[in-house]
Amino acid sequence: MAHSGISVLLEGTNFTRLLGGLWVTVKIAAIALIVGIVLGIILGVLRTFKNRPLRLILRLYLEFFRIVPTVVLLFLFYYILPRQMNFNLPADQLATLVFALWVAAEMSDIVRGALISVPKHQRESGMAIGLNRYQLYRYVLIPQAISLEIPATINLATRVIKTTSLLMLISVMDVINIGQQIIEANNHSHPTGVFWVYGLIFLFYFLIDYPLSWWAKRLEKKRLERANG
């Protein structure tokens, strides 16, 4: 006998299982963001140095991650790491690695953009008072660049969270994969369950991403207001 679809969410452990899947999703996004942001800041600072070969290599790294779609990146690592390099990782760690490398690439561009947009006289004044390179970055450039890069970094975080929806493709037990299992298991008793399960997952993503992008927008607006006086 067919039940109304929404009850599929409340039956048995379905809801807690979905939340568990969401936790896997959030954990992968969070670790990838932390590792990627730290690595990206280092790469971004390196990209403002005058060393040409280094800049070229880092630029190629960025362009590679920009041009290849994330789905393809995941499959590249999924197939090539174990077969060519004998490097076996569970799917969730593999995904974290791919996302972290991707975040690092995008972050390096955000950091570089912010650093070079600090007015030139700031850098020159710093050099004039005899700061060395480390001090120049530590006390002059990075503090001023941070307010420029925070909104872009938050937007990057929302993109990473949305992109975690691809995890199911390499069979990580994320919220979508678990949702599909629930739909299949209850297909007979709850034919409209698919609508409610995907609806709930849709809502989950929205509830995580909307506050973040709202926050980014507000910071950006404040910054522009300050810049325009």
Binding site: K162, T164, S165, M168, F202, Y205, F206, S213
Partner: peptide, 9 residues
């Protein structure tokens, strides 16, 4: 809604 949800879903 469109900006804050993934294309896959």
């Amino acid at each position: 809604i469109s900006r804050n949800t993934p294309l896959l879903i």
